[in-house]
Amino acid sequence: MMIFEILVVALTIYLTTSIAAAYTSSTLTTKITMAEEMRMMMDTLVGVPGDAMAMYPHKVSAYSFILTKGSISVFGVGEAHNLWVAREFILPQGYTAEGSVESVDAICLEKRGIKIVLRGCI
């Protein structure tokens, strides 16, 4: 009977440790943070009247980004679509946003008039 109790305790410890390890090794937090920050960068660029460029201040070579007129998506290289993180934003009428980057160290958002482009920084 004692052995059974020890087994139950060991199983519980294993389960909780596995759950914690899964959360810590997950890149979901990083992707969510990146998507939120990119969205805020987009909102800030819309608040600038002329041309502007902003560089995302972190290394992002492990991730890919897709910018469309209404959203920014962040995902790991080769990741399944259900693991992508997307954040929507609202642009003024007439504005366009486009661009995609993959495995680039630094990314930039460049505003030229009413067009916002996502590209790797030179």
């Binding site: 800030t44 600038v48 009247p49």
Partner: peptide, 17 residues
Amino acid sequence: ELRAELLSLRIVHNPYC
């Protein structure tokens, strides 16, 4: 509040507003 502040930047800075 931060999101709203950034969204509201366009109101007084963007010519399309």
